[in-house]
């Protein structure tokens, strides 16, 4: 048993919001459960009510239309991984999702859950940062958009408040030109958390490169956009590496030393840039 708590499976988002509002801090949203249930087992969290939002239609939506790209908050990662439209448009998103955990866990774990758990090493964070994604968040008072760029407020902390339900993750409309890629350094080829991860999105016609880095600071870090016009690949890489070094502060933990993180971050970034510049990261 994972503890003593109540469980509710609301029939609508409004009902979910009402239950969460009533529950306050003692209520928790249950989507995939792959982080929450581990926390319950380990006694790190002890909510008195779980509100299961998995079966709500809005949260199961997956749209890859020319006017919007929406991944519902309860869509399992495997659905994202296996979606051909998403793979074609945002290879980095598919790869990031595929890098998470195991096949079994990806049948439960969700994009939104990976973000909301707010691990500094969250694999979905860098790619969604460079894609300028935002969350649709609803609570009893209304609906708002929360850019992923403002979501993380610290290690395992977000700007979401009790009562909030993430409805979906919205990305810019599929952009035939954008090249995205994701890279992850881990200890073993099998399932592992990231020692360092990073994602890039490159729009050749706009001469813009966006890069984000995870597991090197208390939160995933989005670097300022890079203007690639007239910059040689080598100079661009140097600039990205400098910016990444300045924006991150790796620490020693059980997964890696700060020194190792500092050593592989440039490697990962160079490979990432090669991915998007050479077009291996998808796009056209």
């Amino acid at each position: 048993m994972l503890g003593r708590f109540e469980y509710a499976r609301p029939q609508s988002v409004d009902e979910a919001c009402r239950l969460l509002a009533e529950g306050g801090r003692a209520a928790a949203v249950l989507a995939g459960g792959t982080d929450l249930l581990v926390d319950l087992r380990n006694g790190f969290r002890s909510p008195s009510l779980l509100v299961d939002v998995k079966r709500l239609g809005e949260l199961q939506a997956l749209k890859t239309r020319s006017d919007e790209t929406v991944v519902g908050a309860a869509v399992p990662l495997n659905v994202v991984v296996e979606n051909r439209e998403l793979r074609k448009a945002y290879a980095g998103l598919s790869d990031a999702a595929l890098s998470i955990a195991t096949y079994q866990l990806r049948n439960r774990a969700t994009v939104a859950g990976n973000l909301c758990n707010a691990s500094p090493a969250a694999d979905m964070a860098p790619i969604l940062l460079v894609l300028d994604a935002e969350l649709t968040v609803q609570n009893a008072k209304g609906t708002r958009a929360v850019p992923v760029a403002t979501l993380f407020t610290g290690a395992k902390r977000t700007c979401l408040v009790p009562g909030d339900v993430v409805i979906d993750v919205r990305m810019p409309p599929l952009d035939g030109e954008l090249r995205t890629a994701f890279r992850k350094q881990q200890r073993i080829r099998g399932h592992d958390l990231a020692v360092v991860n990073a994602a890039a999105a490159y729009a050749p016609s706009r001469a813009t490169l966006r890069v984000a880095v995870g597991s090197c600071a208390p939160t995933p870090v989005l670097l300022e956009p890079f203007d690639t016009k007239g910059t040689s690949p080598q100079a661009l890489a140097d600039e990205v590496l400098r910016a990444a070094a300045a924006a991150t502060a790796p620490i020693d933990d059980v997964r890696a030393s700060a020194a190792y993180r500092r050593a592989v971050l440039p490697v990962l970034l160079r490979r990432l840039l090669a991915d998007v510049v050479s077009g291996r990261g998808g796009g056209i």
Binding site: G33, T34, L37, V38, N78, N107, R108
Partner: peptide, 29 residues
């Protein structure tokens, strides 16, 4: 392991494999 890391509890839920240690019974309703 009880935390979804080892797969020894893998069962199929609507034909997809999940680690049954990280699914509530009530979720399988």
């Amino acid at each position: 392991c009880g935390i979804g890391e080892c797969g020894a509890c893998t069962v199929l839920l609507d034909r997809t494999p999940v680690t049954a240690c990280l699914v509530l019974a009530v979720e399988a309703d």
